[in-house]
Simulated scan of single mutants.
Amino acid sequence: MVSIVRIAALAGLGISLTGAMAGCSSITNHRGYILDETLVASVQPGLDNQQSVRGTLGQPTMVSQFGDPVWYYVTSRTQQAPFRQPRIDQHNVIAVHFDAAGNVSSTTRSGIDQVARIDPESDATPTLGRERGFLEDLFGNIGTVGTGAPTGP
């Protein structure tokens, strides 16, 4: 009888530890275009145009607004540990460049090496000019309002 209780207690402890370890694992999240290497490799400069690229790769994530048309397909995979901010683990950008006639002129690819990590300086935005205190902000305009010549009859 004692051995059955001990086995049940150990099994319960094992299940509890497994559940706790699963709760502490990282969360993986895929964002953007789902990359298919076979489809990307099938886009050929000189052979494809905008219509065939849209049929093969689908709607682009972004389209250039200036210069020659460029379609961007962006994909990111983020990892997030418990109680932490997500961080980018993998990042790919496929750029399909078109000429003026709408034919593919080239394709380029960039990765996480092109991602800029920006850390804000603080909660306040630094500005140029003199620093004013609370009382200067509160009473700074006294005597400056209404100093012009009187108007009216």
Rank of each mutant, 00 (worst) to 15 (best):
H97Q: 11
R109Q: 15
G46H: 08
V115C: 10
L57D: 00
M62T: 06
N92G: 03
L57N: 00
V104F: 12
H97E: 13
Q79V: 09
R54D: 02
W71G: 03
V53G: 00
P45S: 01
D68Q: 09
P82G: 09
Q65M: 08
D113P: 01
P60G: 04
Q90N: 11
T56C: 02
P86T: 06
R77Q: 13
S76I: 00
S42H: 06
G46R: 08
A95M: 10
A100M: 08
M62D: 07
S52R: 09
W71A: 04
I112P: 10
Y73D: 02
T78M: 12
Y72G: 02
V93E: 15
S105C: 05
N49F: 02
V43E: 04
Q44F: 04
T78A: 11
Q80S: 07
Q44R: 13
R84Q: 15
V53Y: 05
G55H: 05
V70K: 12
L57W: 04
I94R: 10
Q79C: 02
G58D: 01
G67R: 05
A81S: 12
R84T: 15
S110K: 12
R109G: 05
R87M: 13
S110E: 15
V96E: 02
R117E: 14
V40L: 13
G102H: 06
S106K: 14
R87G: 07
R84D: 14
Q114W: 08
I118S: 08
T78K: 09
I112W: 11
D68N: 10
G46A: 05
T108L: 08
P82V: 08
P69G: 01
R117C: 04
R109L: 07
I112Q: 10
S105E: 13
D89K: 12
V53L: 05
F83N: 13
R87Q: 14
D89T: 07
D48E: 07
D99I: 03
P86L: 11
Q65C: 00
A41L: 11
T61C: 03
S64L: 04
A116S: 08
A116I: 11
Q50W: 01
F66Q: 12
I88W: 08
G55Q: 12
R87F: 13
R87C: 03
T78P: 04
G67T: 00
S52W: 05
D99T: 02
R77L: 06
V104T: 06
D99N: 15
D68L: 13
S105D: 12
G67D: 04
